[in-house]
Design a protein around this nucleic acid. Sequence first.
DNA 1: ATTACTATTAGGACCTAGTCATAAAACGGA
DNA 2: TCCGTTTTATGACTAGGTCCTAATAGTAAT
Lengths: 198, 198
Amino acid sequence: MKLKKSERQENLKKMIEEEPFITDEELSKRFKVSIQTIRLDRLELAIPELRERIKYVAKQQWDETVKALPIDEVIGDIVDLQLDLSAISLLEIGTEHVFSRNQIARGHHLFAQANSLAVAVINDQLALTANSEISFNRPVKLGERVIAKAKVISTEENHRTVVTVESSVQQEIVFSGTFYMYRSTDEERGDSSNENRN
Amino acid sequence: MKLKKSERQENLKKMIEEEPFITDEELSKRFKVSIQTIRLDRLELAIPELRERIKYVAKQQWDETVKALPIDEVIGDIVDLQLDLSAISLLEIGTEHVFSRNQIARGHHLFAQANSLAVAVINDQLALTANSEISFNRPVKLGERVIAKAKVISTEENHRTVVTVESSVQQEIVFSGTFYMYRSTDEERGDSSNENRN
DNA sequence: ATTACTATTAGGACCTAGTCATAAAACGGA
DNA sequence: TCCGTTTTATGACTAGGTCCTAATAGTAAT
């Protein structure tokens, strides 16, 4: 006797979770049982067939891709946006943002939220960060909601705009930064020559 | 005559790109041709069948999930590390790092590489960025390899360390930053009291 | 109109990775 | 030994194709 039914089914479940692109045939070889047994197991465990599993993973990916396109530009959710004036975005700190050791958000995520908001607030085809001074006032922890507020300070003629961003958790400022942005409408000459420079 | 072969094939290609989960049958209805014509078209355009398309999308998703996990500690690959002295990391700019519009790397990825390197070089349990001044000297494009070099400038007694990072592509500096870091060994009192402060 | 050629459609055999239903066989425990 | 569970086998059928052959349409040039 290799494994009891219940044991096999538990292992099966885990195996399919870890490796969803596996056929019944391959599973039957691994467990040294017939293909029909595997199918009975899937039936009892309500695990769909390979093609449905693949489809499910692919749909997720597709939905995210579709979702990601409009989001692409900004990290966090924009809750208010007045072009060339101000913008507000919200970022909820999840496990993917923190150091596993101490649950403190990694600085570059706060920077990314602020920086992408500074890019988004600019009403031009192209906006790139040229310089920036930032400070992290206190650590942000897992589960906190960071609200970033961007303000456009000055828009000079020479393709430069200054944007300040203050990020806070419950009224307490956790991050602040000044972003010196380069901006350009694509129609102008500056852009493509700039891009080809490498 | 509805569409010429070449026109239909162009549209077909676009349609499948936009909506890869479409069967030949559905396509044949849309173009009002037989299923065989659609299959000939796919053959000529080297477009794989529905199931292969789904599998491809799903694999991508899967690979990214797997890839996203180990990223945790440092953005980029560390190629040299001398604790409390210097460190070097390498980041190859992929499609996930760039603005789709112009293929220029988004600033926060360069920041993330530099910042996480500054954190990594510090020989203490806890290292957090307190302040930073950074500048983006020229846009970095898709496919370029960014080499970030971090140097520890000064290590004062009061938990502060200054680290500079210069990132370059083929000897040309693309990013530079100064990071004012807060560091602490976990044994000391400062850390946990600090963390519980919210 | 006839020929020549491309484009389209049709058909059948085969494939994978299954479903669903039925039945037979093997195994474990009282 | 008999009973109930578990496993295996078998056959019919499905979607969404591949691959190959062959017939038919449509268009253009002679």
